[in-house]
């Protein structure tokens, strides 16, 4: 559920204020609005503002210097690399899982859906830990990997694996309800008319699910670039080699280089804002597409 429930089909809103029975008195409205908006400002808005304010506290020169410093650049590069591998892998998985689950009936389907959600309920720390147990020096494949000079834990492959784990369900859980709702009729028609499986998939299914797919990719990417706990366990924090951006923020912060820590953090905060903007845009597009179908 970490991605939030799918909000691709939203109802209209203002109808409640137009009616006597559902209209709250001005006093109630005032109290509810004040309480909820103050809470929103203190708990959500303030942390975001603080990131940018602290980042720029010592001026633009310090800010830019913190971003172009070699360790920061290599952290940015590693974060992009991990996301660039993890996101496509989970997209292929998500589409494949949704195809099997939404288009076919089979035994154990409910169990499969639950298992796909599993990574959301596992602490990120445990996600990292389980790869250490499999690939670490004392793990299942530890001695074999060492003998063949392959490094996974405290190296880039471990970081990618941990990232894949924590972002595992996003695409699948966005697509499964969407494809279930769409049913199989269009694909069946294409097949009966002689389209091959892949033709049906690319020309019928993909256009139908494109907004849901985009939504899943945006969420996967945001989490992939921002993951901290799982990556922290498998990374070994080797500066310039196995440091992602969130880990770099931690190191700078623990060295009391607050302005630099917040400078790198502000890039991640910017990424979060872009994510929210894209997400809102996709929701809006999906809503429009939905209305066009209904009209």
């Amino acid at each position: 559920m970490a991605g939030g429930s799918s909000r691709l089909a939203k109802a209209g809103q203002t109808r409640f204020e137009a009616r006597e029975a559902t209209r709250d008195s001005a006093l109630v409205k005032g109290i509810v609005l004040t309480l909820s908006l103050v809470f929103f400002a203190v708990f959500l808005l303030l942390p975001l503002v603080v990131v940018f304010a602290e980042a720029l506290r010592k001026g633009w020169d310090t800010y830019l210097a913190a971003l172009v410093e070699p360790d920061a650049l290599s952290a940015i590069k590693l974060t992009l690399t991990a996301a660039l591998i993890a996101v496509p892998l989970n997209v292929v998985f998500g589409v494949s899982a949704a195809w099997a689950i939404a288009k076919f009936e089979f035994r154990g389907k409910a169990l499969l859906v639950t298992l796909i959600d599993l990574p959301f309920s596992v602490s990120p720390v445990i996600a990292g830990l389980c790869y250490v147990l499999v690939f670490g020096a004392q793990g299942w494949f530890g001695s074999w990997l060492a003998a063949n000079d392959i490094k996974i834990i405290f190296a880039v492959p471990g970081i990618v694996l941990a990232t894949v784990f924590v972002t595992f369900p996003f695409v699948a859980r966005e697509l499964i309800p969407l494809m279930e709702a769409q049913g199989t009729e269009e694909e069946e028609a294409a097949t009966v008319l002689g389209a091959s499986g892949w033709q049906t998939f690319w020309r019928v299914t993909i256009p139908n699910i494109k907004w849901g797919l985009m939504y899943g990719i945006i969420l996967t990417n945001a989490r992939a670039m921002g993951e901290f706990g799982a990556v922290s366990v498998v990374s070994g924090h080797i500066r310039g080699f196995t440091n992602t951006m969130p880990l770099h923020v931690e190191i700078l912060y623990n060295e009391y280089q607050f302005a630099a820590a917040f400078a790198v953090a502000s890039l991640l905060a910017l990424l979060a804002l872009v994510t929210l903007a894209l997400k809102t845009f996709v929701e809006w597009q999906a809503e429009r597409a939905h209305k066009e179908i209904e009209a």
């Binding site: 939030g4 929103f40 942390p47 975001l48 969420l219 945001a222 921002g226 931690e250 953090a265």
Partner: peptide, 30 residues
């Protein structure tokens, strides 16, 4: 859902900030 107020769309979009903001960033900001 029930009221209209200025900035509502932004508030609505921003509710998901904790999903999008990396936890380490939230940690140092808090």
């Amino acid at each position: 859902v029930r009221y209209s107020f200025p900035g509502k769309k932004i508030v609505d979009a921003m509710v998901d900030l904790p999903f999008a903001l990396p936890t380490a960033v939230a940690g140092i900001a808090l």
